[in-house]
Write a protein that binds this DNA or RNA. Structure first.
Length: 173
DNA sequence: CGAACGATTAGCT
DNA sequence: GCTAATCGTTCGA
């Protein structure tokens, strides 16, 4: 899909899934002031601060109260590129949104968007091409549940945050 | 109330 | 490949 925030964004090329019974998920230990949005209705933005520095964007998934989400890890920039370059102080297109923190900075994600519906302004979400090859493998930067292959990406995209292991699986979605 | 810990990135080796 | 930067959240005392 194509994700825009205030008209700025691109094609989602990398994501990770997090679920309630998942030790790597913020929702694992139940609702807290930080994670309560994850336990609300689906289709909302869950925004959290990573390492005290980076605002990261997730979409709340599954039924209300479940506590699942998808971390948006990378975009192929297509809209508002000049604005993203300014925000990121970065000219290389491939380094604009290739990682959840970079993406957050490029799209102007802050805590103010936490809990907002992703089908309303300032968000825009639009379906893109179907039938593209998807690779999946281990998630990045976690220490628990490392065996869950819940990182997904558009196969061959140069805009993902890190390469996949050689053994990564592939399927057509 | 204090301390440890990150769903990361940038910069250097 | 390794590490500092940096601060809200969480957990134990």
């Amino acid at each position: 899909m194509t994700l825009l925030v205030d008209g700025v964004g691109g094609i989602i090329v990398e994501t990770e899934a997090y679920d309630r019974e998942d030790p790597a998920s913020h929702s694992f230990s139940g609702p807290t002031p930080r994670t309560e949005v994850m336990f609300g209705p689906p289709g909302r933005a869950y925004v959290y601060l990573s390492y005290g520095i980076h605002w990261c964007l997730n979409f709340v998934c599954r039924e209300a109260g479940h506590g699942a989400g998808v971390l948006i890890r990378a975009l192929q920039p297509t809209a508002g590129v000049a604005r993203m370059r300014l925000r990121r102080q970065q000219t290389d297109l491939r380094l604009l949104c290739s990682g959840p923190g970079r993406l957050g900075e490029a799209l102007g994600i802050t805590h103010a968007l936490n809990g907002k519906r992703v089908d309303r302004a300032p968000f825009s979400l639009r379906a893109g091409a179907a039938g593209l090859p998807v690779v999946y493998g281990p998630r990045i930067g976690i220490t628990k549940a490392v065996d869950q292959p819940w990182r997904f990406a558009l196969a061959g995209s140069p805009y993902i945050s890190r390469p996949f292991p050689k053994a990564a699986r592939r399927e057509v979605k």
